[in-house]
C-alpha cells in the first residue's frame, strides 16, 4: 500500500512538472521575494517623505527651519502654487502638501492623497516628532488634514477590486478557455467552417469584455458604490476589458493545454495586480508599476471613482490601453493564422 502511495505521489509530481503547475510553486515565492525587495525597506526611503511647500506662502519660520533641517525625515520640494501642488500630489511627485489655513487659524493644513494611508500617518507622526524636538510639545503644527480623494475605505479600495476582477477574467478565465478549445481540437473543427479567424477572435474578445462588465456591474450593484464620472468610467471599463481580454486571448494562444494556460495565467495575473494595487504604499513599486498596462487602468479608474476625473484628463491612458489591446489582439491573430500549438 505504501509503495503504491509513493508511486502515485511521484506520478502526480511528474504530472505537475509536465503541466507546468510546479512553476507556480517556484514562481509565487520568487514573485513575493521580488515584490518585497521593491517595497520600500524600513529605515531607508520610507522614512523620507516628499513635502511640498508653496513658494509664495508665508510659513512660520520655526516650522520652515525645522522641516528643512529634518532632512532624514522630509525632502522639501517647492511648488509655485496650491493648484500645482495638488497636481503633483495626484501625480505622486510629492507625498504631502503644506498649506496655511484660511482665517488665520494656528498651525498648517496637510493635504494628502488619502487620509487613511500609511504615508499620511507617517507625515503626521514625523511632524509631531519634529515639533516635540523643537518646542517640547506636539499639538498644533498640523491642525487639519485634507484628503484629495474622498470616500470611505470601501470606495477607496474599489479600484483594486475592479482591477482584480478585470485581471481575473482576462488572465485566469480567458487563456484556460482558449487553451481548452485548442487542446480538444474544437477550434480546428470550427476553422473547417466558413468562419473567419477574426470572427472567432472577436467573439472571444466580446466574451471577455462581457464577463468583465458583468463582474464590475455586479460589484457596484452589491456595494451600491458611486461610479464618479459615469461616461469616463464606462469608457475605461470598456477599454480596460478590451485591453486585458485581448491580452488573455494572446496568452491562451501561447499554451497548448489548459494546465499550461492556468499556470501562465497566474504568472501574469500576480505581477499585473500587485505592483499596481500596492503602488500607493510604496515609492519603489510606484516607479515599477507604470511599466505594466494594469497601472494606467488602475490609476484611471481610481481617479474617476475617487476624484471624479473626466475622460479628457485620462485620454493618454485610454489610448495606451487601447493600443496594448490592439497589439495583443493582432499577435493572437497571427498565432491563430499560424495554427500555433494547435496540434
Amino acid at each position: 500500500m505504501i509503495k503504491n502511495i509513493i508511486i502515485l505521489t511521484l506520478n502526480d509530481l511528474a504530472i505537475s512538472f509536465k503541466n507546468k503547475s510546479i512553476f507556480l510553486i517556484l514562481f509565487i515565492p520568487f514573485f513575493v521575494y521580488v515584490s518585497l525587495m521593491l517595497v520600500d525597506e524600513a529605515g531607508v526611503d520610507i522614512q523620507k517623505t516628499r513635502i511640498g511647500l508653496i513658494q509664495s506662502e508665508p510659513y512660520a519660520p520655526v516650522i520652515l527651519d525645522a522641516v528643512q533641517s529634518a532632512d532624514t525625515l522630509f525632502t522639501v520640494l517647492w511648488v509655485p502654487n496650491e493648484e500645482e501642488g495638488k497636481k503633483q500630489l495626484k501625480e505622486k511627485k510629492i507625498d504631502g502638501l503644506l498649506l496655511r489655513p484660511e482665517k488665520e487659524k494656528p498651525g498648517l493644513v496637510l493635504v494628502v492623497l488619502k487620509k487613511e494611508s500609511v504615508l499620511s500617518l507617517f507625515i503626521v507622526e514625523g511632524f509631531s516628532a519634529l515639533q516635540r524636538a523643537v518646542e517640547g510639545h506636539d499639538m498644533n503644527w498640523i491642525s487639519d488634514i485634507q484628503p484629495l480623494q474622498e470616500g470611505g475605505i470601501q470606495q477607496q479600495t474599489l479600484p483594486t477590486w475592479v482591477l482584480m476582477l478585470a485581471l481575473l477574467v482576462s488572465f485566469i478565465i480567458m487563456p484556460a478557455q482558449i487553451a481548452e478549445e485548442k487542446e480538444k481540437k474544437i477550434l480546428l473543427a470550427l476553422l473547417q467552417t466558413p468562419m473567419r479567424e477574426i470572427e472567432w477572435l472577436t467573439a472571444k474578445l466580446f466574451l471577455g469584455m462581457i464577463l468583465i462588465f458583468i463582474a464590475v456591474l455586479f460589484l457596484h450593484l452589491m456595494g451600491g458604490f458611486d461610479v464618479g464620472n459615469a461616461l469616463a468610467y464606462f469608457a475605461f471599463i470598456g477599454v480596460g476589458s478590451f485591453c486585458f481580454s485581448s491580452y488573455g486571448i494572446f496568452l491562451g494562444f501561447l499554451c497548448r493545454n489548459q494546465a499550461s494556460a492556468r499556470t501562465l495565467g497566474v504568472i501574469f495575473y500576480l505581477p499585473h495586480l500587485l505592483p499596481s494595487a500596492l503602488s500607493d504604499f510604496s515609492q519603489k513599486l510606484s516607479t515599477v508599476a507604470p511599466f505594466l498596462p494594469s497601472y494606467p487602468f488602475f490609476e484611471s479608474v481610481k481617479s474617476i471613482l475617487l476624484d471624479h476625473t473626466g475622460i479628457t484628463a485620462l485620454f493618454s491612458a485610454w489610448i495606451y490601453l487601447f493600443f496594448v489591446g490592439l497589439l495583443t489582439f493582432f499577435m493572437a491573430y497571427r498565432l491563430m493564422k499560424k495554427r500555433w500549438l494547435m496540434q
Binding site: K184, K185, I186, L188, A189, Q192, T193, P194, R196
Partner: peptide
C-alpha cells in the same frame, strides 16, 4: 474560406 465546403475532415478523436 473557398475550400471549407469542399473538404470534410473526420479526425481520429472526435472533436466535439
Amino acid at each position: 474560406l473557398a475550400v471549407v465546403r469542399k473538404i470534410g475532415f473526420v479526425p481520429e478523436t472526435p472533436n466535439l
